[in-house]
Design a protein around this nucleic acid. Sequence first.
DNA 1: ACAAATATAATAGTAATACTATCACGTTGT
DNA 2: ACAACGTGATAGTATTACTATTATATTTGT
Lengths: 225, 225
Amino acid sequence: MEGFAGKITIQVSEKVYLKQPDSTVLGQKIVAGAIDMIDEIGFEDFTFKKLAKAISSTEASIYRYFTCKHNLLVYLLLWYWGWQEYRLILATTNVEDPKERLRRALKVLVEKTQKDATFSQVDEEKLSRIVISESGKAYFSKAVDHENEMGYFKQYKDVVQGVADLVLEVNPDFKYPHMLVSTVIGGAQHQRYFAEHLPKLTDVIKGEDAVSDFYMDLVFKEIEA
Amino acid sequence: MEGFAGKITIQVSEKVYLKQPDSTVLGQKIVAGAIDMIDEIGFEDFTFKKLAKAISSTEASIYRYFTCKHNLLVYLLLWYWGWQEYRLILATTNVEDPKERLRRALKVLVEKTQKDATFSQVDEEKLSRIVISESGKAYFSKAVDHENEMGYFKQYKDVVQGVADLVLEVNPDFKYPHMLVSTVIGGAQHQRYFAEHLPKLTDVIKGEDAVSDFYMDLVFKEIEA
DNA sequence: ACAAATATAATAGTAATACTATCACGTTGT
DNA sequence: ACAACGTGATAGTATTACTATTATATTTGT
């Protein structure tokens, strides 16, 4: 199993990079270094110059992989949702009962993200925090429509579509599967952030994973007409 | 009633501005001009220099009202949530039935925002789009904790608290009122954006206000144990 | 083994941004 | 009448987000 798992890589649309970061040592250092730095100082303060210094390279070299820092962020987001897609497949294949399939899929999406040993070069916990804090900067931009056409949000949309299909397997008459799923995914991420920084916007209950409990309950109450 | 309503102003914490924008013609032009410009070109591309030109003033003059463009954004967000608080009060006072009170409050928050003639200097439709697109840039920053202490999110938290209380009036045993309310508010705003730009993340049904229907249904199904 | 191709480093430069600072001018209140 | 204040005009700075060029490694094909 080890050798098998070791060969898995998450494919990211080549439209977001100039040169595949996976393919070289420098490329991998850029991605790993960017995850560290964006998690630490935030995307606004993150610059290619600082990253270059941190990984002992140069600004110009990083520009050979990504046209701009925005695209590097989009790359990270696409990788994250590609990874979630892979985890969804692992969690649901060979599970027969539709309700159980949906339950397992939701678990992947609403539970707190943990490190995945399959991809040693990526720190998924840090990446998850980046996805929570910085996604808005990618989605809510004046370039959305163009970037959507370029496939910048494909992976995320696929995840939503996949889980929406599972919802329909449980209740084929449910009218709002995409809305429910995107609400739950986005909501769970926000709640985890709120719990840490704006606790008045959430309900933290000690000893319980309130976020998981709440959203799991919400989905099944909503679709079980 | 006209004269009475005409005297209402939304109070915004003085910590976000250097000089009250309400108090002068220039201040009002800065706020109104900022709403127009941020809605049009987005917060990233918005600069005080461009705003100054648009309202025939100077960069330095705008800096006498706001220390930075970020604080101007925070001002707009505080104003918006202060305004929503006022609308919530209007919608719920003198309504006896708890369920009806909650229903009316939710309507205010999930329905599409329309112009409010009470505040002629503010274009609430544009402001609403700004709140949807740019809120994340204020909430998900490395300065959250500090800004939270400064009261930058107070108005929003008050709105969530107020509606959470209405939820508890309907079902005093419900465990997650804040989570439910913040999920619904944030979700509804995102869905309106998705409907326009990323339709695969939502379920638009022609002739129906799917967003309102979905979230209204979601809340009552969830809390009616 | 050696030239050719390619990758990266080193350095310099640019327009725009997000401010700060200074001074001049006109209006307002006392 | 004059100080205080609000605004405008102008200039200046460090940083950012790039682009461009050249030099030096490293890899690759033959």
